[in-house]
Design a protein around this nucleic acid. Structure first.
Lengths: 201, 201
DNA sequence: ATATAATATTAACACTGTTAAGTTAGATGA
DNA sequence: TCATCTAACTTAACAGTGTTAATATTATAT
């Protein structure tokens, strides 16, 4: 009597299919240029079927972004083996963060700019992926402080400062591609280096 | 024979009326929730009249944002009399920038996030207001370097680093109001202070 | 008064997100 | 086996979108 399980599996499969189609379209055409009908066409279902799996378009976006955050978290945690000095670890994490944003610029914008516009009250709730990402940052920072490599600043503020820096440079590079930037990698390096220098003991 | 002038004046008046109505609605309801019909209703004209004054909705947004940039520029240039030490001047400019963004969060997002999404190729063209804002930053930075208060870094990169920092913290505070931030002013201070410290000689 | 130019409106097109009602197919129980 | 029930999906519709073309109105110039 595995029919119940099979049904559940099929259900999950279609849900994923929708999610994949939605992400592809959001990324290639931009959230506001993607209609439920376009997504439906892509998966060869009627538009209203999507509503059996997601509350509305914003919910669809929400799910896509949660996946993105999970990908970001995995990317960062791959660096955790790195047992070099904590400041160098933090620097690499910053690099990885920006690199992730520039590798998937549309996903990054969806997650950190578009989503907050539609989904209010995402204040990093208990156990969310967003919280886990920020916890990662906290650990990195905490290590630097414990080892007296940074001056005695509080962990929260320091984490937020670092986040501001990498978020800022990532978004600027994405949003103003025609601005006469310094060579990209140099700019990213300098942003991270400058911030870290400013935090040192 | 001042009828031509009067007509031109009236034309400009209506143009401004549209612009004001559009900004108010964009700010209170968000760009994507504002329809041409809503704007038209507000000024008691038919929707299509707007198209006699603006190419399309994106053009309307564009004009609103140019105004915002001008306001930002004026806000910053008021500080120019400030003949205190150049590092302190720069710090105050950073403060003013973030403060402006938080005072008009929707306008800030329209200008620095929404507009680039619709208006491609705004790479800081010759003589634009955006260029003038960045020039302001260049001057501030250049003064710090000339007086040997910063180490010998190139002006462009330094400017971009500072912009990244203030842009980042501004957007984060706007987009994630429910995040457990350090006390706002302290965070802003720390972001700017840290960046400047990292640039010092 | 009439022709001309500028300005504004009406009607329409092809879309949008979303809901309510209706249909179909497969599993369940007798 | 047959009726029933239920989950999955679709059709039709609503009120709204940006934008264009054609039309109407108004004010100026001749």
């Amino acid at each position: 009597m595995g029919t119940k399980e099979r049904r559940a599996r099929e259900r999950e499969q279609l849900r994923r299919q929708i999610l994949v189609a939605a992400r592809e379209l959001f990324v290639s055409e931009g959230y506001e240029n993607v209609s439920m009908r376009k997504i439906a066409n892509k998966i060869e279902y009627s538009p209203t079927t999507i509503y059996l799996y997601f509350k509305d378009k914003a919910d669809l976006l929400d799910s896509v972004c949660k996946e993105t955050l999970l990908n970001l978290l995995n990317t960062l945690e791959e660096l955790k083996n790195d047992k070099s000095d904590p400041v160098e670890s933090l620097r690499r994490s910053g690099q990885a963060y920006v690199k992730f944003g520039l590798k998937y610029p549309q996903d990054y914008k969806l997650t950190f700019v578009i989503r907050p516009q539609f989904q209010k009250d995402l204040g990093l709730q208990e156990g969310s992926v967003g919280e886990r990402v920020f916890n990662y940052l906290r650990e990195m920072v905490s290590e630097c402080i414990q080892q007296k490599r940074f001056r005695q600043v509080d962990i929260e503020t320091t984490g937020q400062v670092l986040w501001s820096a990498v978020h800022g440079v990532t978004l600027l590079l994405i949003d103003f591609p025609d601005f006469p930037w310094t060579e990209k990698d140099k700019l990213i390096d300098t942003v991270i280096h400058t911030t870290i220098e400013g935090l040192k003991a």
